[in-house]
Amino acid sequence: MDMSRATFEKGPAVSQDKTIKMASKDVTVHYGQKQALNGISLDIKERQVTALIGPSGCGKSTYLRCLNRMNDTIDTAKVDGKILLDGENIYDPDLDVVELRARVGMVFQKPNPFPKSIWENVAYGPKIHGLAKNKDQLEEIVHTSLKRAGLYKEVKDRLDEPGTGLSGGQQQRLCIARAIAVSPEVILMDEPCSALDPIATATVEELIDELKQNFTIVIVTHSMQQAARVSQVTAMFHLGDLAEVGATEKMFSNPDDKRTQDYITGRFG
């Protein structure tokens, strides 16, 4: 894999001060007979936003789902290669996938709040992981999570109301708050704004920008503008390959790969 080696060499140039949070080496994924990812190697650095872009069906979501083993829920999916979280292989059979997902949270394409109250939505994660020692602490976690998700002001008077009653953008921010409440180290976002209107999208993007101070964020997006707005590093996927990876600014101004050039200039996608 020439391409991936190239990116590894280029890696340090992007932002030298950050340490590598997650590293993947030669990750391949098969869905039954079909190969969806062909040996992806990519480093994700701490406390910044990494955007995965590429035309639909390029494998960016598949790769994202590998990072917290959500692919385990698909019977036919088979993942090979290595993904390290702080140097620890997350596909180690001894590793508890539940612990992994508590460290690597996920926000989905379509907002999917539980049909329970807003409070319970946020409190669920801390509850199952036993993060709060008592009721007050749990209350505090819920409130800070909602605040950090920028939702607190809007919902503070109706925490008992069902989360499904919120607007689409609010629902998605609730899902983000829910993910934050577990205090993960990495948050994976799978096209978090694709079901939202422009105004809600702007709010969520602002939120992502703020969250990068505390969390490592990997976001899949089909919108290049969004990638340009929120990310520091962009990885371009194409047909199951990693076409190019680099600092977002450089990618959008002067990409090395022809496919990236084509995509960014809108020749395909």
Partner: peptide
């Protein structure tokens, strides 16, 4: 949890 100061694997 109190003794060790760290969260046990299971609740």
């Amino acid at each position: 949890r109190i003794e060790r100061g760290m969260r046990p694997h299971s609740r």
